[in-house]
Design a protein around this nucleic acid. Structure first.
Lengths: 156, 156
DNA sequence: TATTGTTATACTCTATAACTATA
DNA sequence: TATAGTTATAGAGTATAACAATA
């Protein structure tokens, strides 16, 4: 597993001045949360990249094309991801009756079980990471993050 | 450049429930800011990975060993990064007089100029992304992010 | 002619291991 | 014997392009 010893960047936290510090903290917080989730999902046999895909699939079967639009990966990349999910028996491809070029990708029963276990782990971790936030702080944090995302997509 | 068409994840933003949404927003905000910075640094001939390294070096020459401890990458990876910086004339290796096994890595004049240009771009982008935050919100955001980082490193 | 999906291939990034030169 | 750095090499992840089947 690559990157098990992770850059802790501002090693003891000598943050730069100004807004760069905000960006760096954003990166550090994301990475810390991401790595922690990946580590906790691993013993369940759940890859963190598969986790996101399965979330979408759990709401209803989708074609690979639809998944590509949701997730944004290249189609050839998605082929391999779905291959892996099929190998693990977590999802299956079935021909779309309306468009016989396309496959419907569906979560299997086994996939649902594993996803449920992963969701439980993710919920526990979420409680640990974010549960201390008061309702107001949580709402405010979401607002701020969404505004940042919006700003990043706007020219200026 | 790989990943130019980036996952926008919750494409129109159908966020999941609970704390998972917070983690996802964290990821989206980080990635949006990161990609935007990378895009704006590129025309200056500044790779975003080099940007961080140069920041550290600008405060004073460091050996590769010291950089490894700061940044957390593998030593063989760092060799290539320093090679690239040297090829571009942004940094140089000189023998450490006290320990002739080691190299001191120093930013060149050209490196300082390019770093200054990159810092100006980063500062402008920071203003755009985060400048709308009031002083209080900014402080609070930093506190929240630091607490999240801390929680992620604690067992629970 | 355009689109869904597959395959073959290549590129990037990074880590592991073996090596050298110093200490 | 241990450490700083280099090199060779392999692996993971992803993209590009050519292709098959269907629309």
């Amino acid at each position: 597993m690559p990157n098990s010893a992770r850059p802790r960047w501002p090693a003891a936290a000598e943050l730069p001045d100004g807004h760069v510090a905000t960006g760096l903290l954003l990166q550090m917080a994301h990475r810390a949360a991401h790595d922690r989730l990946a580590a906790e999902l691993k013993p369940l046999g759940m890859d963190i990249r598969h986790f996101g895909i399965l979330q979408f699939l759990a709401r209803g079967g989708l074609t690979q094309r639809q998944l590509i639009d949701l997730v944004g990966v290249d189609k050839s990349t998605l082929v391999r991801i779905i291959d892996q999910l099929e190998e693990q028996g977590l999802a299956v491809r079935t021909r779309d009756p309306h468009d016989r070029r396309a496959f419907q990708v569906t979560v299997t029963e086994r996939g649902r079980e594993r996803l449920a276990a992963a969701n439980a782990v993710a919920a526990d971790l979420g409680d640990h990471l974010f549960g201390w936030l008061g309702a107001g702080d949580r709402r405010r944090l979401h607002e701020l993050l969404q505004r940042i995302i919006q700003q990043a997509h706007e020219r200026g």
